[in-house]
């Protein structure tokens, strides 16, 4: 029983990380039709810069972590905004080329990060509380899981509120449905593009700093490995659906944890099988609109 609780809790924590990456991917794809391969780099950059900022205040302190999270999110947002304005916008509506550009950017930036910070993972210093566990009904749940879930819930709530209550949110929701009609109402939808990139980049940057706390290391490749699962989550949830991404994040991560423990470390394979199954039954994903 306590094992099951532990697996569910760590699964939820991992799901929170997946969601922080997948939410941006899903929004960007839903509005712009762009699959953003550089999203993992926003995460990695956010992690490195965020940690460096946190270390200025003090490694392993709450103040340092808080500053790290803020700086990580801002870094992710800045990198994403620059990418949208500099590389995506000039290729307006040429989706294949836009994807190719993000592919090139991801290859180039990962190499650059390796050059700057070295190819190998580096350990991080966590606060005492985050490095320890909490007893939940007999299970020793790592405290990072709580932090991840809390952050993911806050980001989900924030994005939902933004989409529901602001004019740009309205434009984004309408644009996901029918972008051409939004422009035909006299709205410059490109500003919304930059905005979803910024929001997605911020979530990824935040996720990057959080991931360093869960993994206990920071590495130039952490973005790429999380990105692949975020892609799977996005497809399973339905491309462009935020709720779909949230549900699929939890399902995928929990399933992964369960399979890793009970089925001989087969979590990653089970996730791919789940993806195949979802596609056979519902090609548009759990909550996606039929194409």
């Amino acid at each position: 029983m306590s094992t099951l609780i532990l697996l569910l809790a760590t699964g939820l924590g991992l799901g929170g990380l997946y969601f922080l990456v997948a939410s941006g991917l899903s929004l960007i794809y839903g509005l712009m039709g762009v699959l953003n391969f550089a999203h993992g780099s926003f995460l990695t950059l956010g992690a490195f810069v965020g940690l460096a900022a946190g270390n200025l205040v003090g490694a392993g302190t709450w103040g340092g972590l808080l500053l790290g999270l803020v700086v990580g999110a801002l870094t992710g947002a800045a990198a994403a905004t620059a990418t949208e304005l500099g590389l995506i916008r000039p290729l307006y509506d040429r989706h294949i080329e836009q994807v190719l550009v993000t592919v090139g950017l991801s290859l180039a930036t990962v190499a650059l990060f390796e050059g700057i910070w070295g190819p190998n993972p580096r350990n991080v210093t966590r606060t005492e509380w985050l490095a320890s566990t909490t007893d939940v009904l007999g299970a020793h749940v790592p405290n990072t899981a709580f932090l991840n879930v809390l952050a993911a819930a806050a980001v989900l709530g924030g994005i939902v509120a933004f989409l529901r209550y602001t004019r740009y949110g309205l434009i984004i929701r309408a644009g996901v449905e029918n972008r051409a009609m939004v422009t035909a109402l006299g709205i410059d939808v490109r500003r919304a593009f930059t905005l979803v990139f910024a929001v997605g980049g911020a979530a990824a940057g935040l996720g990057g700093v959080l991931a360093t706390q869960s993994l206990n290391y920071v590495s130039p490749h952490m973005g790429a490995s999380l990105l692949i699962f975020a892609f799977i989550v996005t497809v399973i949830g339905g491309m462009g659906s935020l709720t779909g991404a949230a549900v699929a994040s939890v399902v995928v991560a929990v399933l992964q944890q369960l399979a890793n423990f009970y089925l001989n470390n087969t979590g990653d394979l089970i996730v791919v099988l789940l993806l195949a199954l979802v596609l056979l039954v519902r090609p548009s994903g759990l909550m996606g609109r039929p194409a």
């Binding site: 699959l35 994807v99 692949i228 497809v235 990653d268 394979l269 596609l279």
Partner: peptide, 27 residues
Amino acid sequence: ISLRVTGISFAMVTLAFAQAGNVLVRR
């Protein structure tokens, strides 16, 4: 299986299968 979806989804699904192969090889 992957050709049941098109465009970007197809790209992602093929990526997922290749990733599974990569996991198998590394494990």
